[in-house]
Write a protein that binds this DNA or RNA. Structure first.
Lengths: 195, 195
DNA sequence: ACCGTTCTAGAACAATCACTCTAGAGCAAG
DNA sequence: CTTGCTCTAGAGTGATTGTTCTAGAACGGT
């Protein structure tokens, strides 16, 4: 693995545990094994640039993970419930650490570090595009597919925060059941919206 | 308003914009008008204690707000959709600032400031208790009521992050529709779970 | 008037922050 | 062997962090 990748991975790992502001560049250096000089050689724009790389990298990985969880199911609702259950399993087994830093960092930086916020927005938009395509393949209209994946991601991000804070699988399970109900409703009664 | 309340309010305002770690005690002092000495007189445990007070205070306020949005509706699903729509209106009108700091701070601090995380957990649990009671009054079983309010809060918190980051009402609207569908399903087909 | 307590006021402190700088290691090309 | 470039290496920089300290203002009870 290249040095800049090692740095980005270490940053992502720290971001998902403690967010952006609380993560020091010295911590990243220590965790990655790279010296400070190397970090600033590979990322001349400093901490912000490292965080952007970390967000893009783990955003892509996490998007693929969710897609791979949903893909095996022809029944959209079953796939959604399975994905949320898998998330609950994972978060419990890893000691209630978030799977993905994007949600945490996004909430923290949108108003204070606009460039980082823009990267988080790109990641979210990528997930929405991917999910929309997936659900359209399963027969939903474009509008319904987009609304559904948006609800999936919203519920997943929020349930992660609650499950992590409460140290309980319940929020992820409840959120999964909830959005699965939405999926069933959309499959049964497609909504055609204007605009 | 008492000095310690002014300090907590100023802290809450900063927390919901930039989170815990990025908020400096000097910023709180400046925003509240109180001198540093006063702050450490009222909060001898420092920044952490101020943040705890801010979380409890705005947690209570926000819980009442959501309850007051749901209460007028006999139809649970209609109430949920209305609450999410109201949230979308608010966040758009205030320039995409989060309504409540609890979600942002929770994600940031659970693993790094356990006491603050515990306070966030208390707030979430309070919301869940209140919502469970409300939905039970509307005829749901205890388990269904608890699962539904947990899904509501999860989806609301997550959709806030997405709406704020994407500068769009869509996530809050989609999440509201989604959880409303869950409510309709629970009203039509109550699930009795064992355990 | 006097005392004790509560609260205001901000200068000062060590620690930590993101970052810069200089020096040299490693390597490929000529 | 020399040259030029990429990357490693970490000591050092000024600014900022949360917190402490000392001094005095304000106030109620006697």
């Amino acid at each position: 693995m290249r040095t800049d990748e090692r740095i980005a991975v270490a940053m992502a790992e720290l971001l998902r545990r403690q967010g952006y502001a609380a993560t020091g560049i010295k911590q990243v250096v220590e965790a990655s094994g790279a010296p400070i000089g190397s970090l600033y050689h590979h990322f001349p724009r400093g901490k912000r640039a490292v965080a952007e790389a970390a967000l893009r990298q783990s955003g892509a990985a996490y998007g693929e993970l969710v897609a791979s969880l949903l893909a095996p199911y022809d029944d959209i609702a079953a796939g959604i419930e399975a994905a949320f259950t898998a998330a609950a399993d994972d978060i419990e087994q890893t000691g209630w650490v978030n799977m993905c830093p994007v949600g945490t960092v996004a909430g923290e930086v949108v108003d204070v570090e606009p460039e980082l916020g823009a990267v988080a927005a790109e990641v979210f938009e990528g997930w929405i595009e991917g999910g929309t395509a997936l659900f359209r393949e399963r027969g939903l209209t474009d509008d319904d597919a987009r609304a559904l994946i948006t609800a999936v991601i919203s519920a997943l991000e929020g349930a992660f925060v609650l499950s992590r804070t409460l140290r309980s699988r319940d929020p992820l399970i409840a959120a999964g059941r909830g959005i699965a109900a939405y999926a069933r409703e959309l499959v049964a009664d497609p909504v055609v919206r204007s605009g």
